[in-house]
């Protein structure tokens, strides 16, 4: 198992390098000028100097290798320095990936935005799983009952209706139509500056998280509950279930211990594979509820033609995808003794 994991990890390195190169190529081939947004009164020779100061006069492969050096060597070293105080090499004058718009290191910007995204995305995924698992179990156990039919229909709606419509619909209902002083009124804008210090601010935090978390959570629940149902159905007709019943085990034990545990194996891998997509989907949800997380940072970066920021963020999304693919494979091998990668 360890062998397999290590081999797969070795294989991810060229994959990620190739992906980072593709992203760099797309950004570089694009016919846009980062100084294009500056005032027209700037004389051409100054403009040329600005371009040179951004490092744009160097050839393409030099800029790519420079980004690689900054991202893969300098940034981890800097993180070591900040976390553990280890100083390796030149700690002060080290070149880091710098945003063109804010002139601050991109990694710091990402670290600033990370908690909000993780809170909203993580919470919504958790809510989605908590909703999906019982629904999937019940609708498989009572196949073709009214509960199953309703569940199928609702999950169909859940992944057909795009999150940008459910989000806006919830805003219309809970922020626009609901009177301001009502208990059910919810804020449509996520306030990041809110600090949880006492019960009332905790209540406020919960209220502002309800809508974004529910929008993403329901979307996830719709998908996961389908997998859960299918996987439960596969297992319910197996021989070991009949054996368990024949032994005289309680129905609850058969369902929740024997069948559920076995049906969770494929579902866990689906959950792991879904995590990076959730970060992508959060781009839209963050835009609806004005959460200043990673998705919003990406949108700002794209609109401001902030190439280093966009490059780094897009690459991080790619890292998430590759990493969680690996995690799903490893989890599958760990959970299911029938699968051996040797």
């Amino acid at each position: 198992m360890l062998n397999f994991t290590l081999r797969r990890l070795m294989f991810t390195i060229p994959t990620l390098l190739l992906i980072s190169f593709i992203i760099f190529l797309i950004l570089d081939l694009a016919p846009n000028d980062p100084t294009g947004n500056l005032p027209l009164t700037i004389p051409p020779e100054v403009r040329e100097k600005i371009r040179a100061s951004l490092g744009l006069d160097a050839p393409m492969y030099i800029r790519y290798l420079l980004w690689c050096q900054q991202f893969f060597i300098n940034e981890p070293l800097n993180l070591f320095n900040e976390w553990f105080g280890w100083c390796i090499g030149d700690c002060e004058g080290r070149l880091r990936v710098t945003s063109w718009a804010t002139r601050s290191p991109v990694v710091d910007l990402i670290a600033e935005r990370m908690p909000q995204t993780l809170w909203v995305v993580g919470m919504s995924y958790l809510v989605g799983i908590l909703i999906a698992v019982p629904i999937g179990v019940i609708s498989a156990y009572k196949q073709y009952s009214w509960f199953d039919q309703a569940g199928t229909f609702i999950s169909m709606i859940g992944f057909s209706v795009p999150t940008f419509f459910t989000g806006v619909l919830l805003i219309v209902i809970f922020s626009v139509w609901m009177p301001n002083d009502s208990f059910f009124w919810l804020p449509s804008i996520y306030d990041t500056t809110l600090e949880v210090v006492d019960w009332s601010s905790f209540g406020q935090q919960v209220r502002q998280m309800i809508m974004p978390v529910m929008v993403l959570g329901l979307y996830n629940a719709a998908q996961i509950s389908r997998f859960m149902r299918a996987s439960m159905l596969d297992n319910l007709s197996q021989d070991y279930v009949r054996t368990a019943r024949a032994k005289g085990l309680k129905e609850k034990t058969v369902l929740l211990v024997h069948v559920l545990r076995n049906s969770m194996i494929p579902v866990v891998t689906v959950i792991a594979l879904g995590i990076p997509q959730i970060f992508g989907g959060a781009i839209i949800t963050e835009q609806i509820f004005k959460v200043n997380g990673l998705g919003q940072l990406l949108i700002i970066g794209i609109q401001g033609a902030d190439i280093p920021l966009v490059q780094t963020l897009t690459f991080l999304f790619a890292v998430l995808i590759v990493l969680f693919n690996l995690v799903a494979d490893v989890l599958y091998g760990l959970l299911d003794p029938r699968i051996r990668y040797e």
Binding site: I22, A30, I283, V310
Partner: peptide, 17 residues
């Protein structure tokens, strides 16, 4: 490789550029 690319961010970037 295409499956490993972060599609929504890349779509946004390509369209913008």
């Amino acid at each position: 490789l295409f499956l490993a690319l972060p599609l929504l961010p890349l779509l946004l970037v390509i369209i913008m550029l």
